[in-house]
Amino acid sequence: MTGRESSGTRRAGLFDLRLILAVLFLLYGIIVLLVGLFSDSSDYKDKTGDVNINVWMGISMLVVAALFGLWARLRPIVIPQEVVEEHEQT
């Protein structure tokens, strides 16, 4: 197999997808929540049957963002040296 010996591979894990997801849903949550808060019920009544879906989904996406952030914070990516060596042997 190729490339196993390159140390570049180890850096592959270093950008954390969980943080990217947290940022995406933070932005989405804020925008959608604001749209919901500043809209009048006549804007969505016919479509949703009087549920302000933007507010609900905005809050939900903020919660999701927080969960991803928390997960990344509590279980950060660690790349212990022995795992690297073990990989090279197999």
Partner: peptide, 22 residues
């Protein structure tokens, strides 16, 4: 994500199989 991932590509295995690291 495309640009960030580019930094971790240094061999063909990185490119085609994410360096078996995910």
């Amino acid at each position: 994500i495309g640009f960030l991932a580019r930094r971790s590509v240094s061999s063909s295995l990185d490119f085609f199989l994410s360096g078996r690291s995910l």
